[in-house]
Each structure stands twice: as structure tokens, then as C-alpha cells.
């Protein structure tokens, strides 16, 4: 077994938090520490392609009460890159579909001596509830529209990598702000690191109350585009709403889809992000999604790095 570098050990020992539930409660320094460690892991693993043997014999449990492909895969891969094993639980095919409460399910899984529980759930606050009921670290992999801290971190890491800084940048989060955990995690992280944040989308999905947090809101993407350094295009979460928030998809695309014409009015260095999955033709047209300004695939690699960092900070002190 390879020796664990002393520096990595010290970073994990210095980390004060037991769980990663949101970015709202993290300090600027803690966010920077996560980002820097993600950078370190990228270097140590040749862009997350090699395996480190930091958490041998540990098991990370993915507890996904809501569908997910990329986040669950990303967490699993991140755990394995650190040398840990993973187990997956999903709602269907588990005792949850037999009526067991989710706290009971989680306690059972904890009793199998897992090192960390990674939870995704449709209801805000569920990771907090688990954190109160479990002794092992809990990582929030998305709780309804509340937060998705590792997604926020990977978006910010991608911006920092491509543009060299966060401070002073203007970042627009565009689309379904109301139902987006990505928007909330980005908002807190970006604000703490000194970016100017614009929330842009139809009035039914962007509440004027956001202004109380010293955030700019806009319903006019065309006005916003020339001022932005980064556009983060959020998926319309049709599954979270009973009443359609706008008259038609066609009308939404007309007002808010990021297409070639809109891109032409942006700054030359504009960076386009999308947390995925994307609705091609709704939030973004294929030519933009696959174009030079798009960092969509960088985001995927950075997701691995950020999740390795989170797992190491929460589990590394015991390794």
C-alpha cells in the first residue's frame, strides 16, 4: 500500500465539518480549500484518470431517492479513484418501496459500516435530517430545489480553470431558477468568492425576492448577455411543476435559448456552462452546446475532482 502523503493527511485533519450539506453555510476559505484540493487531485491523477489508494477498505454508499445518472456515476467513480468501494441504493427495488421510512433505510445502511452516505432526494432538507440521525458523514448530492453543493463547486472550479479567477466576474444563471439546486449552490459559492451574480429567466421562475440577497435579477437575456463572463444554462425542470411556468417551450426557446445569434453578441471570452442533463433546443442549441465556448465536458471531469476532494475531506481523517 502506497504511503498517504502527509500533506493530504493534514488537509483532512484540518477540515472542521462532519458533513457537506450546502454551500450557504461554508465560508469562503472552506470553499477555496475544496477547490484547491480538487486541483491537487486532478494533478495527482492525470485529470482523474488514475487511481489513488487513499481510502482502501472504506465503502461509500450512494443513497439515491431520485433518478440520477451522471451524479451517481461521478460519486462512485470518485470514491473508487480514492481506493474506496461503493454500494448503490435506489428507491425502486429497495425496502423503501415496501414502506420502510428513509431514516430506517439509512440507519440500516450505516450499520453496514459505511464511511460516508451520499444522498439525493426530492425533498429539501432530507440530507440534514439524515445528518442528524446518522453518525457517518453525509454528502448532499441534491435535495430537491435546495442545494447541490458538489455541482456548485464543479461549476466554479471550471470557471476558475478557464478564466483564472472568480472575483470580479459577472456570471448569469439562466433558466429555471425556482426549481434549481444548481442555481442556489452556484449563487452562494460565487457570491462568497466575489462574483457578480445575475439570475435570468421568466418572471414565473425568477422571484424578485432574490434581490434581498444582493443579487441582480433580469428577465431579459439579450440585455444581460453582453455583460457576462459566464453563462450557466439551467435545465427547465418540467417534472417539478404542475402548472407550466410559461405558455410553451417554443416561447421559452425564443426568449431564453442560447443560440448562435445570441452568442455572437457575447464577450469574446464568454464561457458557457450547463449542469446537464440539457434539453437540446430548449436551453441551448446544439451548435452552442458543442462549440468552443462550451465547457460542458470539462464540467464532467471537474465533477470527479470535486467529489474526490469532498470525500477525502470528510473521510480522510480516519484513513
Amino acid at each position: 500500500m502506497a504511503e498517504i502523503p502527509e500533506e493530504l493527511r493534514n488537509i483532512a485533519r484540518g477540515w472542521q465539518r462532519s458533513h457537506l450539506l450546502d454551500l450557504e453555510s461554508l465560508s469562503r476559505e472552506e470553499i477555496l480549500q475544496l477547490l484547491d484540493l480538487a486541483d491537487t487531485f486532478k494533478q495527482l491523477t492525470d485529470n482523474c484518470t488514475r487511481k489513488l489508494n487513499l481510502l482502501p477498505g472504506s465503502t461509500c454508499a450512494n443513497l439515491f431517492f431520485e433518478n440520477s445518472t451522471r451524479t451517481r456515476t461521478s460519486f462512485s467513480l470518485a470514491a473508487r479513484r480514492l481506493g474506496a468501494d461503493t454500494i448503490d441504493f435506489s428507491r425502486s427495488g429497495s425496502s423503501l418501496s415496501k414502506g420502510e421510512s428513509f431514516i430506517d433505510t439509512a440507519k440500516n445502511i450505516e450499520a453496514m459500516k459505511v464511511a460516508a452516505v451520499i444522498v439525493r432526494h426530492g425533498t429539501p432538507g432530507t440530507p440534514q435530517l439524515l445528518a442528524q440521525n446518522l453518525r457517518c458523514p453525509v454528502i448532499n448530492a441534491g435535495d430537491g430545489p435546495h442545494e447541490h453543493p458538489t455541482q456548485g463547486l464543479l461549476d466554479i472550479l471550471t470557471i476558475r480553470e478557464r478564466l483564472g479567477r472568480i472575483e470580479g466576474l459577472t456570471v448569469a444563471l439562466v433558466g429555471d431558477i425556482a426549481h434549481s439546486r444548481t442555481a442556489r449552490s452556484n449563487l452562494w459559492g460565487l457570491k462568497k468568492l466575489g462574483a457578480h451574480v445575475i439570475l435570468c429567466g421568466p418572471a414565473t421562475l425568477v422571484s424578485p425576492r432574490w434581490r434581498e440577497l444582493d443579487v441582480e435579477i433580469s428577465h431579459n437575456l439579450d440585455e444581460v448577455i453582453p455583460r457576462c463572463d459566464v453563462l450557466n444554462l439551467l435545465r427547465i425542470q418540467f417534472e417539478r411543476q404542475e402548472q407550466p411556468p410559461f405558455p410553451s417551450v417554443r416561447e421559452y426557446a425564443l426568449l431564453y435559448a442560447m443560440n448562435k445569434e445570441r452568442l455572437a453578441r457575447a464577450k469574446e471570452e464568454i464561457l458557457v456552462l450547463a449542469p446537464g442533463p440539457i434539453n437540446r433546443g430548449v436551453e441551448v442549441t446544439p451548435d452552442v452546446a458543442d462549440g468552443d465556448h462550451s465547457a460542458i465536458l470539462n464540467q464532467v471531469t471537474n465533477g470527479l475532482a470535486v467529489r474526490m476532494a469532498a470525500l477525502w475531506l470528510l473521510c480522510g481523517h480516519a484513513a
Partner: peptide
């Protein structure tokens, strides 16, 4: 109030509830 769990305001907006 359909599906609502708390008062609608800045706190519900931030918590995504």
C-alpha cells in the same frame, strides 16, 4: 398553497421549499 410546506418568502426561496 398546493404542495406548500412553509410560508412563502425569502426563506422558502433560499431553502427551495
Amino acid at each position: 398553497t398546493r404542495n406548500g410546506v412553509m410560508h412563502e418568502g425569502l426563506v422558502s426561496l433560499v431553502l427551495g421549499l
